[in-house]
Design a protein around this nucleic acid. Sequence first.
DNA 1: ACGTCTATTTATAAACG
DNA 2: TCGTTTATAAATAGACG
Lengths: 230, 230
Amino acid sequence: MAREKIKIKKIVNITARQVTFSKRRRGLLKKAEELAVLCDADVALVIFSATGKLFEYASSSMQELLGKYKLHATNNADKANEPSLDLQLLETDEIRMGREVLEKNRELSQLRGEDLHGLSLEELQRLESMLEGGLHRVLETKDERIANEIASLQQKGFQLMEENKLLKQQMMTLISKGKRPRTMATELDNLVTNHEDQGQSSESVTTNVSGPPPEDDCSDTALKLALPFN
Amino acid sequence: MAREKIKIKKIVNITARQVTFSKRRRGLLKKAEELAVLCDADVALVIFSATGKLFEYASSSMQELLGKYKLHATNNADKANEPSLDLQLLETDEIRMGREVLEKNRELSQLRGEDLHGLSLEELQRLESMLEGGLHRVLETKDERIANEIASLQQKGFQLMEENKLLKQQMMTLISKGKRPRTMATELDNLVTNHEDQGQSSESVTTNVSGPPPEDDCSDTALKLALPFN
DNA sequence: ACGTCTATTTATAAACG
DNA sequence: TCGTTTATAAATAGACG
């Protein structure tokens, strides 16, 4: 309900669908709560995303509400059916779930290309475009992720080079002054504090620098810093 | 949300509360349905008025949805509570099947490329090769099927050409002998019996030949015979 | 994915019949 | 208790970062 009016039918673009889902979901949950508060009503709202994630709101205990609902539902159904319907419902639920499992398995094995012999040409086409779409989106996100990792590595590498340059300068200064470290701790103190005086974009680096084994040379330190992302 | 802004707290005036309830209830039900349709989500909404009247919406079967909800709830609750949380419906079969459905759904939506954000690079690679494999096999069987259809069509076409050639010869023979048909039936009899003496692989054709309109020329007959496979 | 912005569409509070 | 109207508050589609 904004910029453009939209038809109320499944949004085809997956990204747009997910965005709309998260916006409208929040709106719906909010309105459910408002109704419960304003009008002193009992409200239970259960939402499953297409991907199976669960979102819920209940003005009181969800269990309680669902129990109450079940009473109403079975009461109304009893008018048409025999009274022992509750047990029947449970059975059919199981059966339905069993069917669902079978159906999902068939779909999965078709997508894996395992059980294609009963399918018409049209169904094969449908499978094909579904697989192509999925593959396309997988490659997209993979590429994106890889690009990010590369960029991140480059960034870290650049920071490390800067670090190393500074560290070498500090070393040279120390050496040229003829100083000799009394303890490793004090030397490191000097390195860090001096570096903070000169570096501008060094917050993240200085945090990482806390307490490296003094025996390591620079390249080894670089390796350690590059590791923290998988 | 109109004329005046209102605080979200219980409306004291009873009449106003009931009016607001009926308005907002309709709005909420509408929005619940919109969310389900737009985003392909499963939505269940249960509303009890303060007076105990029931209003509900479910994008599919309410029973199914509530079953699904119970599974999620028990899954999450099991982590923190002892398993005896839900006394009524701890049928292990149901829960196991439900878990299976959830799992299958997740897999399916990943294969469709919809829910890729939680995945590692390795998992993406695995998805990619699975999709590629599936696509490969689908294309294979599709190509195979298409090749078969083409070969079949060519075969039939060849047979039909042979048929036509023979029919024309028969026609020519009849005409050159100066014969004139007394009845259509006898002429057709001649055509068919003569043809069966010479043709070898003509079973399927002769069965189709029963009772064609005699006004048709040869090309039209060929058209009719070419139809029976889709 | 998530937050922000903005132009529009929707929902709705109050009033009236 | 309803439906209708109307002015205003909210929700949100699309765009951007």
